[in-house]
Structure formats: structure tokens, C-alpha cells
Simulated scan of single mutants.
Amino acid sequence: MSVRKASHAGTWYSGSKVQLNEQISLWLKNPIIKTEATKAIISPHAGYTYSGSTAAYAFKNLIPSKIKRIFILGPSHHVHLDICALSPATFYETPFYNLKIDQEIYEKLRKSGKFKIFNIKQDEDEHSLEMQLPYIAKIMEGFQNNFTIIPIIVGSLGYQKEIEYGKYLSQFFLDEGCVFVISSDFCHWGHRFSYTYYDQSHGDIYQSIEHIDKMGMNIIESMDPQHFNKYLKEYGNTICGRHPIAVLLQILKNVRQDQQCSIKFLRYTQSNKSKTFHDSSVSYAAAIATTEL
């Protein structure tokens, strides 16, 4: 048994089971459940102090009793990839309990030839997947022996590869009991992120940031992957999970011939209301994707 350690516990979120349980339980009290047909969510992956309350709006809409497998797609922040990667571990550690990686599905992914395997250090250095794990463990605590996870690190894919991965993963998307968690923050604004787009017609800098983020969110809600790709090229918005989001849009494009699909954003926040070019901020958003026959 190989266990990937919760390497960001105690820094990005509390390593104390009691404290973490209190925080997440409090955040989950606020959102209202919008649907029982949620097949995917978009959730932020910053430190919980900044984005934990926003993530609750997405996770609240997952129905634990219906879930058997959870695909988790997050971007690679430290290792350059032009494909997707899998974990070498068999379990992911959280302060609550260990999450079991679905080796049956992993074997199918490995045999496809579309995925490389991270080493354990690369896996533990990456936070985009780990930040989803405590929430997953918390909402699934009553069913912890009844589900598995399928963590996938998504590289800097070109548009054609986003199409290919979307088509390949769509075979799992419609499986009963399968949900997808897409890990992404939104605009990273400021000199330290090398992104200072500012349209003064929308007010202060933070209002301009919100405008460009919500432009992207509206396009995501339209489920048009080509339009999303064009938007990213035109505005350069630093949505770090843009490739996992694009793969989700391609998945939905493939399944829409069989099911009605929709994406709805439920929450949007910023780490700081930037007003000068000395400021910086990161944006966070929570969304759900639903399907109906």
C-alpha cells in the first residue's frame, strides 16, 4: 500500500481533524442545495482561509449516497506536462481518513497510453488535487467505504488534446454513481502573476477583474469549448484550471447528444479588492454541472 501524504495539511488548511471538521461543517451550513442531478463541480484550490467558504457552494450539491467514483481533475503547477498524469499512490491521506484510489479505473487509464505517472514527490508537491480531498472526505464520511477516487493531473493541453481527453473521459462521465470534481481558481491578478489587465470602463481594478472573470464564467455556462478557448486567447485570463475546465466542456459536448446538460455558477469571491497596481488578488468560483435524460 502506497499512501500519498497530506503534504499541505497544517499550512494550506488545518491539519487538525477537529478544527478542520468545524470549519468545513460551518461553511457547508450556508449554501442551499440547487439540484440532485449534479454530475460535476468546479471548486477552488487556494488555502482554505481564502477559498474554503466558496468551495462549500459546489460540494454542498453533491449527493453522497449516490456517489461511487469521484474523478478529480486539477492543473499541474510545478511540472510541465502536455498530457495528463496519474498518481503512483494507492491511497490519498486526509486529516479525516485515507481516500482509496480506484485501481480498476487507473489500470484502464494506464493502458490507454494517454497518461504518464507522477513520482510521489511530484504528486505531493501539487496542491490542486489535495485541496479538494478534505471536502470530499467530509461530505462522504457516512459512505467512506463505498466510494473511490480517480485523481488526474491535467497538463497544459492544446485544444486538440482537450478534445481527445474530453472524448476519452466521457465514457466514465455517464456511469451511474460517477461525479467529476474540477479544481480551478480564477483570475490571478497583479505584477506577481504577470497579469494586470484593467478595463477602466468597469470601475476599480477589482470590478474589472470581476467583469473579465464573469465573462469567462458565462462562456463556461454556455458549454462552448471553442468560445472558451477563444476567450482565453483574447484576454489571457489567468484561470489556472483552464485546461481541466476545458476538458469538462469537451466531456459535456460529447454527452449532450444523449442527455440535457447545464452548468451554473453559484458563488464568486476575490481574495482582495485590488484598487492599485501595487495590489494583487486571486478569484474563486464554485459551479455545478447537471445532466438530465
Rank of each mutant, 00 (worst) to 15 (best):
I163N: 05
L26G: 03
P134Q: 08
R192Q: 12
I136Q: 03
Q250C: 14
T276Y: 04
K5F: 06
K275W: 13
P134K: 10
L174N: 03
G52P: 01
F91A: 01
P244A: 01
R267K: 15
T291M: 10
H202D: 06
A89M: 08
F118D: 08
E162N: 14
Q132F: 02
S184M: 04
I149Q: 06
F59C: 03
I153D: 00
H211W: 15
V255H: 07
S14V: 04
D204S: 12
E162M: 11
S16H: 11
T148L: 02
Q160T: 10
I245H: 13
S201H: 11
T11W: 14
H202C: 11
F147M: 07
L249Q: 11
F172R: 11
C261N: 10
I117V: 15
A56W: 07
I149Y: 01
T196C: 13
Q122T: 04
S281Q: 05
Q19D: 13
L26E: 15
Y284F: 10
T291E: 01
Y135P: 00
T90Y: 13
A56T: 09
L26S: 14
S7V: 09
I152A: 00
G74R: 07
Q226H: 11
A40C: 06
I72G: 00
S262P: 00
G155N: 10
H78T: 10
T49W: 05
G190M: 09
S14H: 01
C187V: 13
F91R: 15
Q103D: 04
N119K: 09
S194D: 15
N229D: 15
Q144I: 04
N254W: 12
T148V: 10
L133C: 06
G203Y: 00
Q270I: 15
A286P: 02
F265H: 10
D185S: 06
Y92F: 14
P88G: 02
L20E: 02
K167E: 08
F172S: 05
Y50P: 00
G74N: 08
E210Y: 00
S25Q: 14
E162C: 12
G74F: 07
N254S: 12
T291W: 09
K111E: 07
C84Q: 11
I24Y: 01
E221G: 07
Q23T: 09
E124G: 03
P64M: 03
T269F: 10
K29C: 06
S87Q: 07
I263Y: 06
I251C: 06
R192I: 13
K100P: 08
I251T: 05
A46L: 06
E176W: 00
M131A: 03
A89R: 02
H45R: 12
L20K: 07
S201A: 14
T35R: 15
Y57N: 06
C178G: 04
E162H: 12
S283P: 01
